[in-house]
Design a protein around this nucleic acid. Structure first.
Ligand code: MN
Ligand code: MN
Ligand code: ZN
Ligand code: ZN
Lengths: 132, 132
DNA sequence: CAAGAGATAAGAATAATTCTAATCTGCGCT
DNA sequence: AGCGCAGATTAGAATTATTCTTATCTCTTG
């Protein structure tokens, strides 16, 4: 399905900026990207878009289910083009996120606190350079 | 062991500020606290300490293994007085962290990317108000 | 108790993000 | 095709959490 159709499908007007950002984000697979990085890619691709719009767009896309936010770094938000349920390796040195594609099973979890329900379960495996 | 002895044990001078913060943090169990919150508690307890020192101290305590940093919120760092291996419920509404005390078992994890080794594995179960 | 390394504090600086309010544009309607 | 306007974009200011700077203070050791 075209990017324009996907945007219409989630109720977002296919503006020049949203179409361009959606192309950068969604037409390659498995991306984990920050707002600054995406803004940089847009500029590199000669797409004129403000940083405010990049932030707006990332949040709207997330809201609409086209992206997922991954929280691994205090003070930096990553957005993930893989919206299926999955987990991550996070390299604290390079700041790189890597999908864990395999089926991971968690057992032994207690029930959530009463009055609350589980919204999401995130596993982050923090890795660093091998040292011995 | 006294707070002063614990500080000496990890090579930190027991200054007035560090002793007071350590008392607030370590003499009650199971705390998950931000720098601002701890600064507020210190002020409430008539401990004169600057916010910069609270940040310095939290990082030094973490470095020294007296605390653990928990990353669940972009733009806010939580520090955990429970330094044993454990996981968390995080209430996105209230910003509250709750320890998962039970033994949780994760199976099916692939090996870390080559050249890296696992430093830590964090599970965050994000919960919200029950809605139906 | 003097000296000096290390610690603290106030405020400036930084970084990521959000807000404001002015301008622009996609799109339904004629 | 042109109008009108809700919704979108923008530049820059504002906000928030955190870190940095540098002058002043205070533990520790002799
Ligand atoms: Mn956000
Ligand atoms: Mn930190
Ligand atoms: Zn991912
Ligand atoms: Zn905890």
């Amino acid at each position: 399905m075209s990017v324009v159709a996907r945007l219409r499908g989630v109720g977002l007007r296919p503006t020049r900026q949203r179409v361009a950002l959606a192309r950068l984000l969604l037409e390659k697979g498995g991306r984990h990207i920050t707002a600054e990085q995406l803004h940089g890619e847009a500029r590199a691709a000669a797409v004129r878009v403000s940083l405010a719009t990049v932030y707006n767009t990332l949040h709207q896309f997330t809201e609409a289910g086209l992206l997922r936010e991954v929280i691994v770094d205090p003070g930096r938000s990553y957005f993930d083009t893989n919206t299926s349920e999955h987990h991550h390796f996070f390299d604290e040195g390079t700041g790189e996120l890597l999908d864990i594609g395999a089926d991971v099973v968690v057992s032994g979890l207690p029930l959530p606190p009463s009055g609350t329900q589980v919204h999401r379960l995130d596993i982050v495996v923090r890795v660093g350079p091998e040292r011995r």
